[in-house]
């Protein structure tokens, strides 16, 4: 049974009614369109807090290297804390099988062509995973640099990945994902010699829309910069724990 289904709307959002000029009534509201998602997100936050767990929402275009970064990170973190992964894809369990290969509990969500994860789906994934106390949970969102950014999943932090092959102006072209993230991980830096990607320009674009954005450069393939990323993850988890 679902623990979170059937939650009511937040009680502070209410309606006032009066006669309209036409035949019917006008109901005046002041209600966030995503209020229901936010209720599920709050339930997810509570679920995590009750287990001393921490969740990181990972957003990027398809093919930016989320799963590969995850595989490498899990290998470095698996003796540190209990780990779990929520995988989001339109179809297939290919990514879940890659994570299983590292020996970490994983739950695959198939959105059946839905372009983003929402908090309700993630809540169900947590139930399937039965999170251990102190877990570090990575949520790999559906590969899409636009839609996932608008949906709170109840995560503790959002990370946006950008691979150097995508071009340095992505933060200017697709700003919402970068506005809502705490960290940008620039991936596939081993390919820098082969592409026209200016690290300075990319950082400038990103900071123009989010001045507080932390930026980490890494290559999952060579391992360069992985230490900085893993250190950030540990710092976040320790901060949440304290």
């Amino acid at each position: 049974m679902c623990d979170t289904c059937g939650c009511g709307m937040p009680s502070h959002e209410h309606a006032h009614e009066y006669e309209s000029d036409h035949d019917g009534h006008v109901i005046e509201l002041e209600m966030n369109v995503l209020a229901k998602n936010d209720v599920y997100a709050a339930a997810n936050r509570e679920h995590l807090a009750s287990r001393g767990a921490v969740a990181i929402n990972m957003i990027s275009s398809p093919g930016a290297g989320k799963t590969t970064l995850l595989q490498q990170s899990l290998n470095q973190l698996k003796d540190w804390r209990p780990l779990a992964v929520v995988e989001g894809d339109l179809q297939t369990d290919n990514d879940a099988r890659r994570i299983q290969g590292v020996g970490v509990p994983v739950h695959q969500i198939n959105t059946n062509n839905g372009c983003h994860l929402d908090a309700h789906m993630v809540g169900h994934a947590y139930e399937h995973l039965s999170l251990a106390t102190g877990s570090l949970v990575f949520i790999e969102n559906v590969g899409n640099l636009v839609c996932p950014a608008g949906f709170d999943l109840g995560e503790n932090a959002t990370v946006v990945l950008l691979s150097v092959t995508e071009g340095d102006d992505k933060p200017a072209k697709y700003p919402v994902a970068f506005v809502n993230a705490q960290v940008m991980v620039i991936t596939k830096t081993d390919l820098l010699p082969y592409v026209d990607f200016s690290m300075d320009r990319c950082k400038e674009f990103a900071r123009a829309v989010n001045p507080d954005l932390e930026i980490i450069e890494c290559s999952s393939r060579t391992g360069d910069g992985m230490d900085g990323w893993v250190a950030w993850v540990k710092r976040l988890a320790n901060q949440v724990a304290s």
Binding site: S20, H22, D23, G24, H25, I27, L29, E30, N32
Partner: peptide, 12 residues
């Protein structure tokens, strides 16, 4: 940054 429902018109 808001995304809100502000009013509805309804009929009995």
């Amino acid at each position: 940054r808001d995304l809100k429902v502000t009013a509805l018109e309804v009929e009995e």
